[in-house]
Nucleic acid binder design. Structure first.
Length: 403
DNA sequence: AGTCCACAGGAAGGGCAGGCGA
DNA sequence: TCGCCTGCCCTTCCTGTGGACT
């Protein structure tokens, strides 16, 4: 068979009937027209926010629930609808959304304020001003609007664990300080126990209303996927069992709708790349490992060099396959070695300890504090990723460090 | 019962890059 | 230019601790 030229590949691609008609429907940023299995939450939130239409301040709301349980989606959906209604009723309503997990955007007090001021059309330099002044800029910008402002703070637990709860206290006081506007805060958190850590005054002010989003079960996930698949794929592209398999896999993992959508989307992409016309369960299997692989590789790539070399130290210790668990001290010794090999200035053990904690939080490793009695207290470190991914990450790091 | 290991992890602060107003 | 502010990464110094060993 004659070799395909690059032009053949391109024309094949162009002539091919696409599997996807609207891939966006399978991403988390997509807001569907209706949201199944969340009627009661939608109605509740709607009732709480409705006073905004009559220019009254809605209660502050706190929403909890695991990843992919629809917290953000429902909040945005309801506030979108509210905005439409407000336009009809000609009432002044402004909705602001911020996600505190956006790295280098809103993960500190200063940045959050700067970001919010920016939404309101005020320029704040990325650094340099006293925080008090940024507050003033933000408050002034608010004052220029009138009516009701709904401020959605997503992943609020990430912010508070980093900068403390004072910022929330300041927010709850806006209503007393500014005459023209009424602000209502919707806090969204992945962590249910988070509210216990904040100051009692803030707590009572913020959680005037509370609700919890339970995880989806496999049947519900299946409904969600079916709805989205109708929009995302051309007809008859999905083999029987594919959607239920995606739903089942995601249900096993805390009922996470995001994961279910990822699995289905990647399955489709794999089929497309493979020139298959129909998505089968085989593609879902492949997608499952690819979704994890992509997530981990992405995280690894964006780590700073020091973090990468700690990772490399841990991985190469565990690569010997003699042990499944290693200790902080061993990691540090290996790390010092690696540093001299790649001419990197070694950090102190204290700092490495923090880096290990960070890697643990990124779910790349598992680190558990254990006591070995006479032989001290330390952390026992193991891998949180599969052997396959481990090998891929090792290859990447080796290349990166020319090892 | 007491000791002592090998760290965990908190607190404070240094040094840097970068911005502001005077 | 200077003094003051910020976030970020890091070091230094420190106290705390579970449980094997004596």
């Amino acid at each position: 068979m004659p070799q395909k030229t690059i032009q053949d590949i391109f024309s094949d691609y162009l002539n091919k009937q696409p599997i996807f008609t609207n891939k966006k429907a399978l991403t988390i940023s997509y807001t569907p027209e209706d949201v199944p299995h969340r009627d009661s939450q939608i109605n509740q939130l709607g009732l709480i926010l409705a006073p905004a239409l009559k220019n009254d301040r809605p209660s502050n709301v706190f929403i909890y629930g695991g990843t992919g349980t629809g917290k953000t989606l429902i909040t945005r959906y309801v506030t979108n609808q509210l905005e439409i209604a407000a336009k009809k009723a000609e009432s002044d309503l402004y909705v602001m959304y911020v996600n505190c997990k956006m790295k280098r955007v809103a993960d500190t007090e200063y940045r959050l304020l700067a970001y919010l001021a920016n939404i309101l059309g005020k320029e704040v330099p990325p650094t340099g001003l006293p925080t008090v002044q940024v507050y003033k800029i933000f408050f002034d910008a608010l004052e220029e609007r009138k009516g009701v402002i709904i401020l959605i703070i997503d992943e609020i637990d990430a912010l508070i664990s980093k900068v403390g709860d004072e910022i929330l206290y300041n927010f709850t006081r806006i209503n007393q300080e500014l005459q023209n506007i009424k602000i209502s805060i919707i806090g969204i958190s992945n962590n249910v126990s988070f509210i216990d850590y904040i100051d009692a005054r803030v707590k009572s002010a913020l959680s005037e209303e509370e609700f919890v989003f339970p995880p989806y079960n496999a049947v519900q996930l299946q409904d969600i996927l079916n709805d989205r698949a109708k929009i995302a794929f051309s007809e008859d592209r999905i083999k029987e069992g594919v959607i239920s398999k995606c739903a089942a896999l995601a249900a096993q993992e805390h009922g996470d709708a995001r994961r279910a959508l990822d699995l289905l989307r990647v399955s489709g992409e794999l089929a497309e790349r493979n020139n298959d016309t129909v998505i089968t369960e085989k593609h879902v299997d492949l997608a499952e490992s690819k979704v994890d692989m992509d997530r981990i590789l992405e995280v690894v790539k964006t780590q700073p060099k020091q973090s990468k070399s700690v990772m490399y130290s841990i991985f190469s210790l565990l690569d010997g396959a003699t042990k499944e668990k290693i200790l902080t001290g061993e990691v540090y010794d290996t790390y010092i070695n690696i540093c001299s090999q790649i001419s990197l200035k070694p950090l102190t053990q204290r700092r490495i300890s923090d880096i290990i904690t960070e890697l643990d939080m990124l779910s790349i490793i598992n680190a558990k504090v254990i006591s070995k009695g006479r032989y001290g207290r330390t952390r026992e470190i193991g891998l949180a990723i599969s052997k396959d991914i481990h090998n891929r990450v090792m290859d990447y790091l080796k290349k990166e460090f020319y090892l």
